[in-house]
Amino acid sequence: MTAPHLSVRDLNVRIPTPGGVLHAVRGVNFDLMPGEVLGLVGESGSGKSVTLRSLIRLHRPPIQMTGTVEYGGQNLLAASDAKLRSVRGGQISMIFQEPMSALNPVLTVGEQIGENLREHKGLRGRAAQERAAELLDLTGIPSPRARLSDYPHQFSGGMRQRAMIAIALASEPQLLLADEPTTALDVTIQDQILRLLLRLREELHMSVILVTHDLGVVAQTCDRVAVMYGGRLVETAGVNDLFHAPKHAYTLGLLQSLPGAGEHRRPLQPIPGGPPDLRSLPPGCPFAPRCAYVTEACRTGEPPLLEVAPGRFSACIHYDELPALKSTLEEVGV
C-alpha cells in the first residue's frame, strides 16, 4: 500500500462572528491517495469550501485552523510561509467557487495566468504568452491568443470559469482542489471540463479533490466520495459502494432525492428541514432533527466516524438498518 498524497487529521476551523464562534469544520479526517479523485459533497453551508481553503492554510486570522494537513512530509498548517508559498499554486492548485470575484477585475486574463507561470515555471514574456494561450486553448476557449488581453468582465460566466481552471493548471500541480469547477457551465462544456480534468489526472498523475453539489458529476468522475454534513465528514466510501448501499441516513436521503433513471443529473434536491446552526450545535447527531431513522440513542452523543466495513466509514448509529438502493451509476446519469 502506497503512502497517501495528502493526509488530514482532526481539522477544525473556527470563525469568529458577531453572533458567536462559528465552528465551520469539526474534526475532519481523511486521506487522499496519489492519482485519486475524491468527491466532497454536501448541501450548501456544510463546510466544503471552508475545508478546502484550510488545506492550503488560506484562511486569515481571526479564522482559526487547527489539526494537521500532511503533504510531502510536512504539516502545511505549521509550515513556514516560504514553504507554504512554494506548495500553494506550485504543487497544490485551487479553483475557486466564484470565478467573478476570484479574478482581479483590473488585470487581464493573460496577466493573471502569467503570474502563475512566472512564479512557478519561471516563464516570462513571449514564452509565458505562448503557454498562457495554450492553456486557454486547452480549456476550450476559442481564439485564445486574442482573449489573453481581455479583462475578466469581458468574458462570459463559463469562460471565466475556464480561465480560472487554466490559471490553476498553469503550474501543472500534483494536487488540484476544485471548488465546484463546473457549476456555472452548461452540460456540454461541463463534460469537456471534467474529461479534461480526468485526462490531466492521468497525464500529470494529479490527484483531485472535487467539491460539488452534483451527484452525477461524482458518479462520472470520482473514485471515492466524502459526504459532509454540519462541518463533519459523515460518510466516506468508494463511489460504487456509496451509490449502492449508503451507510449514513443523510447520504441515503441525498440519493433518494435524486431524480429517477432517464432524467439527467440534477443538483441535490433538498431534504426537508434546514442545516444545523454551526454556532450552537445540539448534542448528538447533527442530522437527528431531519432524520427518518432517528432514535433516542442518536441524541445522546455525536456518533464518531467509524470504519463500518473495509474501506467504508460512517458516523451513523443505525447504518446497518438502512436499505440498499437499487440505483446504479448508470441511473445517476453516467
Partner: peptide, 20 residues
Amino acid sequence: AEYVDFARAKGLRSRVIMTR
C-alpha cells in the same frame, strides 16, 4: 477581496500581491 485570496492560493509573494 476574494481575488487576493486567489492570488495567495497561486503562491504569489506578498510583495507581488501588494504591488500588482
